[in-house]
């Protein structure tokens, strides 16, 4: 069976939405970070799919860069989680409401 480009995009969209819903729903910081990684991966997939669809390497190049930056982001995020844990002794995000008016 032939694969249409939209199917690949739909897959990427699906993974993205799963990740997004996870971010909305979860209270644990590390879990939220993992869902963010999912979203980034979904974006990556979308890029690669376009590269395949349009026979252009640019999409794959971008995917490489996104990967690198996402890894950096994950590292910093985890560092923050660890120091947060040191301060709060808990990984529960429900009590962090410093942005509230």
């Amino acid at each position: 069976m032939k694969i249409d480009p939209w199917m690949v995009q739909a897959l990427a969209a699906g993974i993205f939405m799963i990740g997004f819903a996870g971010v909305l729903v979860r209270r644990n910081v590390i879990a939220m970070l993992m869902c963010v990684e999912l979203m980034l991966n979904a974006a990556n997939m979308s890029f690669v799919a376009y590269a395949w669809q349009h026979a252009d390497m640019a999409g794959q190049a971008v995917a490489v860069f996104v990967m690198a930056v996402a890894a950096a982001g994950a590292a910093v995020g985890l560092a923050i989680v660890v120091s947060l844990f040191r301060a709060l002794r808990s990984a529960d995000t429900g009590g962090i409401t410093l942005l509230k008016e």
């Binding site: 209270r27 644990n28 985890l78 660890v82 844990f85 990984a91």
Partner: peptide, 19 residues
């Protein structure tokens, strides 16, 4: 890295992990 951090923090303290 994720697994390291999870181990460091400890599953016991992951209150409301899945909630």
């Amino acid at each position: 890295l994720f697994v390291f951090v999870i181990m460091i923090i400890g599953s016991r303290r992951m209150t409301g992990a899945g909630a």
